[in-house]
Amino acid sequence: MIEVDSLVKQYDELVAVSELDLVAKPGEVFGLLGPNGAGKSTTISCISGLVAPTRGTVRVNGHDIQREPKAAKTGLGVVPQDLALYEDLSAAENVRFWAGIHGLGGKAAAERAAEVLSAVGLADRGSEPVKNFSGGMKRRLNFACGIVHRPTVLLLDEPTVGVDPQSRVHLLELVAAQRDTGTAVLYTTHYMEEASALCDRLAIVDGGKKIAEGDLDELRRLVGERDLVLLGGRFEDERLAPALAGLADAELIQLSPERLHLAVADAPRRLAEVLSLVSASGGDVTETTVRRADLESLFIKLTGRELRE
């Protein structure tokens, strides 16, 4: 169980995390979806006790991470965004080391290491030095080191960045398997597809702030039944804005001289109507995108920007 209360982390002037609340319960994957620089890693670092929050509290399994760090960290597993491996050691030695750090000794450590290595598909590569591994293999080993001590709370910071599609699917399955054993998982990502495929509940964050929270259905409802129409080109706001106001079952999200974002119900069929309206108002369209309602369109609706800008 992770409980984050009004968490603030400030680096000098920069507010990396601002008044963040979240709860991740046992047996659930809580997603933190947001673009680069949204404050996801900083949040993870505050929860794992790596950095001290400027304000607010973090409790892991009921223990305050700052006041009772030992108790809080006992059930904690962390898979950091940057690999944390000993490249010169073998995969098995890496896993055994982290097992040992968490108090598993001798035979138990070796057995558990073998078990975890086979779970991540590295059973037959255990004796090889990590430096010979591919990026995807290192990611999987990084994951193995984070779960070797059977944590009850697991923090995963963008664990699939830069891996091949196969390793990625494998990793997502591994996370789901952890949840199914009753672990509370906090999963950060900037991939909308991952968040919607894996997370039971999620928060969308941007600029350190939570801008939406809920399960997938709740978030979809926030976008409404409308799709998104994203147009690029030249637009004359004074003439266009009043014209768009008359458009039925639509909402203007962003209008600038180069950009027009609209939420429109049943967009594919009504695109012609929108385009003729624009040209009638003296606009010029050079680029057209239609997006069905999803998390990405929710992010655009909430921030006016795309997730992967």
């Binding site: 960290k73 904690l76 944390a84």
Partner: peptide
């Protein structure tokens, strides 16, 4: 630089 130091800080033994 290998990141292991940070991971250790997140373990109960530090």
């Amino acid at each position: 630089d290998g990141g292991t130091w940070a991971r250790l800080l997140a373990s109960p033994i530090g």
